[in-house]
């Protein structure tokens, strides 16, 4: 369970990133955050694992405050939160397997990981994670030999190998073409359902949001302006969140499954 309590974020230049956010996300939910760019979607997501610091308030994960956590305690909490990025954030020059294994750094002492002494079990977990996203056969390829969609699957596998309880995905499909977009979203959805991992995704395609989410959160200028189940998120609601009519490029449109 993730709880936001009166969270506020002000950037050094005075811009308000998040404004009095109160929010509770339950285990197993598939939450999609929508809003214009600059509305604070990314800030909200990154404040959960403290890649961004908040200015006021508190964020609790399973009852423990990550806002107050420090050093090893913070790293221990981050270990349970996987993250998927728009640009994949893989090390392109090393193998897929090494990238996935790097998700397990939080489980071992720094010294052990620096020496590359991964337990056999970890390699198995990593390969298992790759199987789950259907790219097991690419384990020993260099990451930059893979297509964009495949790279994003590797980063999903990294979050799986991490055995995370929560997955945060920051615009995971913004750099992908429509077909691979659906494949990646399908992977996320399947993992959410099969493993019960709480998933929070930032998206700017509204039809995808409706199709995959169980709950939608709308942000506008740092404020929470909508929070409800998918069924309630009508076109009018989206117009409200965006402060204008929905444009065509905010819809992915129909793509035939290959």
């Amino acid at each position: 369970m993730i709880e936001f309590k009166k969270v506020r974020k002000v950037y050094p230049n005075g811009t308000v990133g998040l404004d009095n956010i109160n929010l509770t996300i339950h285990p197993g939910e598939f939450v999609i955050i929508v809003g214009l760019s600059g509305a604070g979607k990314s800030t909200l997501l990154r404040s959960i694992n403290r890649l961004h610091e908040i200015s006021e308030g508190e964020i609790l994960i399973d009852g423990k405050s990550i806002t107050a956590a420090k050093g090893a305690g913070l790293r221990r909490m981050r270990r349970d939160i996987g993250m998927i990025f728009q640009n994949f954030n893989l090390v392109k020059r090393v193998s897929v397997l090494r990238n996935v294994l790097s998700g397990r750094v939080g489980y071992h002492s720094t010294l052990r990981t620096l020496l590359g002494l991964w337990p056999k079990k970890d390699v198995e977990i990593a390969l298992e994670a790759l199987s789950r996203v259907n790219i097991r056969e690419k384990a020993y390829a260099r990451a930059d030999e893979l297509s964009g969609g495949q790279q994003q699957r590797v980063s999903i596998a990294r979050a799986l190998a991490q055995e995370a309880k929560i997955i945060l995905a920051d615009e995971p499909v913004a750099s992908l073409d429509p077909l691979t977009t659906r494949q990646v979203m399908d992977d996320l959805k399947r993992i959410n359902q099969e493993l019960g991992i709480t998933t929070i995704v930032n998206l700017h395609f509204l039809d995808l949001a409706r199709e995959y989410g169980t709950r939608i959160i709308g942000l506008r200028a740092g404020k929470l302006v909508f929070d409800g189940p998918v069924e309630e998120a009508t076109d009018d609601v989206f117009s409200e969140i965006y402060g204008r009519k929905i444009k065509k490029d905010e819809l992915l449109g129909d793509v035939e499954e290959a």
Partner: peptide, 10 residues
Amino acid sequence: MAAETKQIKT
């Protein structure tokens, strides 16, 4: 599985 890793890494 261990055999597989070994084979490819050698």
